[in-house]
Design a protein around this nucleic acid. Structure first.
Lengths: 152, 152
DNA sequence: GTAAGTGCAAATGGTTTGCATCGAA
DNA sequence: TTCGATGCAAACCATTTGCACTTAC
């Protein structure tokens, strides 16, 4: 984890960005919460626990840089705010998918890809060259599905 | 197309909503542009061509009702505004997918589904019951792909 | 030393809401 | 007639921006 931070610091400097204490703090929060999907405001809250003087604008500006460097993914689950997720340097560019529970709101991730066939079809039929995709699957999670059974 | 309007009118009244001239105009625009992905502002622009007195709030309020009745789909292509698409009453609940060109911004639709296998996996591995899904595929369309070939 | 980064507050822009008025049923 | 619908303007809220000050390099 310390090595991740220095890897990221190197990547920042390669692109002529400075590694400030604020950016380090934001990175720490992102790295410690890779499994979550934090909004800018939530990131600010966590960062402020250790560095109360940081401003929201800095969070947004840092996220923008990290996004442009491909270090965070940005997603939108339809609740009116963007959510960010740290992306390990060595991971493949294709994103994992998200299972969104319509009852409790929990968001799970799945690693299965299985879209290769669809991408081949898309190229064959439309001449469209796929570089990435984003799949949101709505439904009911293991806990909520039984309760909802009668209603579906 | 006239029959679609009356079908929708019936559906509105079933849910105790009135079919006002404004709502009719908004519906007309949505139905005439089923292939597009209009934002609220764009819908207002088209509606104003015939009924200049309509306000933006009415557009939003109408879209909200239509969405709650399942008559329009709502999507977000990451440009900071929601986009709406009229959904024929008889169409299946699973949405079609979108191809988003990273160069020219064109959005194409595809009807292929091909996600059944993935949905089975998701149920088997996670106990997650799928009710719907939304797939955005990013890349380069037939026109832009050749120009971009060297850069990818 | 200096250009880049920061914090604050103000601006922006899509969307929502309050309210007085209007009109479909 | 009556309650829901409308238009307008103001409010809202996530995000962006301007600016004077600070700081990493």
């Amino acid at each position: 984890m310390e090595s991740i931070l220095s890897q990221v610091g190197k990547k920042l400097r390669e692109s002529d960005y400075k590694l400030t204490p604020q950016r380090e703090e934001i990175l720490r929060v992102l790295i410690e919460n890779q499994d979550k999907h934090l909004s800018a405001e939530e990131i600010l809250g966590l960062v402020k626990e250790k560095s109360p003087e940081i401003g929201l604008a800095t969070v947004y500006r840092t996220l923008e840089i990290l996004y442009s460097l491909g270090l965070v993914h940005c997603m939108d689950f339809g609740d009116g705010r963007k959510r960010y997720e740290f992306e390990l340097l060595e991971s493949k560019s294709h994103q994992h998918h998200h299972l969104i529970c319509l009852n409790c709101g929990k968001i799970e991730e799945i690693e299965e890809d299985l879209l290769e066939e669809l991408e081949r079809e898309v190229y064959k039929n439309k001449g469209f060259v796929v570089t990435n995709h984003q799949l949101k699957i709505y439904g009911f999670c293991r806990n909520c599905a039984p309760k909802k059974e009668g209603e579906i």
